[in-house]
């Protein structure tokens, strides 16, 4: 499904700000895999997503998605089959446009055959309504409201729907619930689980919450200094506890207040 082979990226090479963000990352995902990613700030998690989504060109290595080499494909072309959510709920939607218009934009990924001059049809509208209703947030009755009027949680739920409206081959979730209040975060996480499971979407999720990293999905990886330092799957993952994982963290010399805090809160 997704194959990362020896991916490296150094920002600002040759300057005092030189930073090796990724060094020789290898990762293979099978169809339907749901991988959670842990790591301290600056470990390279978001950079890894940037490399997969095409925000920049990697220095070395190759990226294959579904057998196609996408290493040098521009970001907007990759987004035809890669959905991405950011921590900032404002990043995924156009605030001055209505819910309906935002969904229509997301829907364009699937409708490459239709004329660029066609308008939102009644059929599209009905489909948007149904899909919004599945979120259970009452947004289906507010389709003509500008998205800027929605709360952060509603916007993030809408972004999730937009990223999955046309089922993507790969979904990248970059701490997409971290900026929400706990109750809303819980709700958006539930929606994520439901949508990913129903559509069998291959998914990568960055989180700082160890319990949810271990409970969601079927694999967990830990990153440090631009490399994958630990991979957990199957029985080993099932037997892993927050305490033991924290111990691994310390052994790796990783200190991260946010992870420690989230573990304490459990």
């Amino acid at each position: 499904m997704l194959k990362l082979h020896n991916i490296s990226k150094t920002f600002n090479p040759g300057t005092v700000n030189e930073k090796t963000a990724l060094s020789g990352v290898n990762l293979h995902l099978a169809p339907g895999d749901f991988v959670t990613i842990l790591g301290s700030n600056g470990a390279g998690k978001s950079t890894l997503f940037g490399a997969i989504a095409g925000s920049f060109v990697v220095d070395t290595g190759a990226i294959h998605l579904d057998g196609v080499n996408i290493t040098n494909m521009p970001d907007y072309k990759r987004s035809k089959f890669i959905g991405r959510l950011f921590q900032d709920p404002l990043k995924g939607t156009a605030p001055s446009m209505t819910i309906e218009e935002n969904l229509a934009l997301a829907y364009m990924r699937a409708s490459s055959g239709t004329s660029p001059f066609s308008m939102i049809s009644r059929k599209d509208r009905a489909e948007f309504r149904d899909r919004l209703a599945e979120l259970g947030l009452g947004l289906e009755d507010r389709m003509n409201h500008p998205v800027g009027l929605l709360s952060g949680g509603q916007r993030q739920a809408l972004t999730l729907l937009m990223a999955t409206l046309v089922t993507p081959k790969l979904l990248l979730l970059d701490e997409h619930t971290a900026a929400l209040d706990p109750a809303t975060a819980e709700k958006v996480l539930e929606l994520t689980k439901k949508i990913v499971e129903e559509n069998h979407i291959t998914c990568l999720m960055i989180t700082h919450n160890i319990p949810s990293a271990l409970s969601l999905g079927n694999r967990t990886i830990m990153m440090n200094n631009g490399s994958i330092v630990l991979e957990l799957a199957g029985e080993e993952r099932a037997n892993m506890t927050t305490e033991r994982l924290l111990k691994v963290f310390h052994e790796q010399g990783i200190s991260n207040d946010r992870i420690l805090f989230s573990a304490d809160a459990e």
Binding site: P74, Y76, S79, K80, A94, E101, R109, P116, F117
Partner: peptide, 26 residues
């Protein structure tokens, strides 16, 4: 025109370019 698919993508470009690139629009 601004309500067609192309028009919507032009409007979104001014509104939130990040989001537009994530919607497979150049």
């Amino acid at each position: 025109f601004l309500n067609t698919r192309l028009g919507l993508s032009i409007r979104a470009t001014g509104d939130n370019p990040d989001m537009v690139r994530a919607s497979s629009i150049n």
